[in-house]
């Protein structure tokens, strides 16, 4: 699994500037997703005992759910654009930066408590995203 792979036929190798742009777009997108996730969680609380069909209807009738999914739509368009210029295995894990935004929002806006576990978790996630972002942007093996 660790052997260097050759590009698949038909998949063009992107140029470095666009590869960096793709990474930046995905990182910016995580902010959108964080807001979307929060809205979806708010809306999901109103669906605790709903069936699958009721959940689908809820996506269109509960404002928080609808707004949350609209943000996901914007994210998807930007993500597809980014995928044209970067590797999936670099760009997809970058979405994990969203965890950092969600945790910060919870502490700042909703007065959830911060504790050592959370702080370590945030720092480790940020370092993981940094490794992927910097390594992926440089095209490092």
């Amino acid at each position: 699994m660790l052997t260097p792979a050759t590009p698949a036929p038909g998949v063009h190798v992107p140029d470095p500037a666009k590869r960096k742009l793709a990474i930046f777009i995905v990182l910016a997108c995580t902010l959108l997703v964080a807001v979307g996730q929060y809205l979806i969680k708010l809306g999901a609380n109103r669906l605790s005992h709903a069936g699958l069909v009721a959940t689908m209807i809820g996506i269109f009738t509960i404002p928080q759910l609808f707004a949350g999914y609209c943000l996901y739509g914007v994210f998807t368009v930007l993500f597809v654009y980014a995928l044209r210029h970067g590797e999936l295995s670099i760009l997809y894990p970058l979405i994990a930066l969203g965890y950092v935004w969600v945790t910060i929002t919870a502490v700042v806006a909703f007065h959830e408590t911060m504790n050592p576990f959370k702080i370590v978790g945030l720092l480790v996630i940020i370092s993981g995203v940094a490794v992927l972002g910097i390594g992926g942007g440089a095209g490092a093996e």
Binding site: A5, P93, F117, K118, G121, L132, G135, A140
Partner: peptide, 21 residues
């Protein structure tokens, strides 16, 4: 797409961070 040390390190750190979180 090659599974590189950069990717394994990055995803490993992210997983560890999420478990801590």
């Amino acid at each position: 797409e090659a599974i590189t040390k950069v990717k394994l390190t990055g995803v490993g750190l992210i997983l560890a961070g999420i478990i801590f979180l």
